[in-house]
Design a protein around this nucleic acid. Structure first.
Length: 352
DNA sequence: TAGGCGTGGTC
DNA sequence: TGACCAAGCCT
């Protein structure tokens, strides 16, 4: 099976079926000379790490609206960027996004490096993202290997070695198909194929442009591929969130440490989230425990979060966090688990 | 290097 | 409805 046939079949398919995305330059426009905005491409690729296109669209629109250039973003306040990212998850991406923007301005004159090596040296840009930006923004023939491409290659070659051990061989397959004439379109084509045709559960082999090249389709093994090493079960952890409201309506919030879970994000003071929580309220007050805890699942554990509320007098001095005036508090600036706790507590704290 | 790190959609 | 999954990176 010639590699040229897979590459050209994917490019021909992409010419017709490319999905519209705010940061994407469609193939016809590229032929007319339109170039992608490297800033918009970088922003999209960071947001798309482990995140669906549907979830990213609105955030990408919001970010490019508030911060139209990398220089604008580099000059932003940390807290404003974290608040804008709230709800998208994997908050280390937002911290690295700012570090990266500031490095591009400080070290590269405000222009993104145009090579894989230059890009991967930047914060938050790893092997996949460097290849994606190099190919999509600059038409460098770098090979993207994400979850989509892994699945497509595992099926094209009927590769049964489980991930992540199979990564190197899947990369070698992917490299053989990388286009040198249209690198950016090819990278997006193979990922679009994985997202829309060569899907994990119910691949649409009947309309797949590379079906004639697919060894798994011939063997009937496509639903088993790619194989993955089994994941560990998630433990359940417990904790308590303290939601206090002052007489003037202000809310007691704290910015979490940069490292660790929800790092750098605004939230309610909480206990640590362990098997045996050690309650330590952020101040003396009459705390009421809500009947229903907030439930939330993170990547590696389930959390059952007891919620305690208190109304406190104006002169109360907290030993953690700070009171945020009612006018400055927007629940959307909180990570989702904190929004859940807020929604449970809102009814009892609505009246000051 | 294997584990930490979010969230919402899907079945 | 709970488990799995989605355009990974960092340490």
């Amino acid at each position: 099976m010639g590699k040229t046939s897979v590459t050209s079949a994917l490019l021909d398919w992409y010419d017709v079926h490319a999905r519209e995305m705010p940061w994407r330059v469609m193939p016809a426009d590229k032929r007319a000379g339109v170039r992608p905005d490297p800033y918009a491409v970088w922003l999209s690729e960071v947001m798309l790490q482990q995140t669906t296109v549907a979830a990213v669209r609105d955030y990408h629109r919001k970010f490019t609206g508030i911060w139209p250039t990398v220089a604008d973003l580099a000059a932003a306040e940390d807290a404003d960027v974290m608040a804008a990212w709230a709800g998208l998850g994997y908050y280390a991406r937002a911290r690295n996004l700012l570090k990266c923007a500031r490095a591009v301005v400080a070290d590269h004159g405000g222009a993104f490096p145009q090579t894989y090596e230059g890009l991967i040296a930047l914060p938050g840009i790893g092997p996949y993202t460097a290849a994606a930006i190099a190919s999509i923004a600059f038409d460098v023939p770098a090979t993207v290997l994400d979850g989509n491409v892994e699945r497509v290659m595992a099926r094209l070659y009927d590769e049964h070695t489980p991930l992540p051990a199979a990564k190197p061989v899947l990369m070698s397959y992917a490299e053989q198909h990388t286009s040198h004439s249209r690198p950016g379109d090819y990278a997006q084509a193979v990922m679009d194929l994985g997202a829309t045709i060569c899907t994990p559960k119910s691949p649409a082999c009947g309309i797949c442009p590379v079906r004639p090249n697919c060894d798994a389709q011939t063997a009937g093994t496509q639903l088993e591929l790619p194989r993955k090493t089994p994941k560990k079960p998630k433990p359940t952890r417990y904790g308590t969130a303290y939601i206090a409201r002052r007489a003037d309506g202000a809310w007691l919030l704290e910015t979490r440490p940069d490292k660790g879970l929800l790092g750098g994000m605004l939230g309610w003071p909480t206990t640590d989230w362990s098997d045996t929580p050690d309650p330590a309220p952020p101040m003396d007050a009459t705390w009421d425990t809500l009947n229903e805890p907030a439930r939330h699942t993170f990547t590696h554990f389930h959390l059952i979060l007891s919620v305690q509320t208190a109304k406190v007098p104006q002169n109360t001095a907290p030993n953690r966090g700070a009171f945020i005036p009612e006018a400055d508090f927007t629940p959307s600036a909180l990570p989702t688990v904190m929004q859940k706790a807020y929604n449970l507590a809102a009814a009892t704290l609505r009246q000051v």
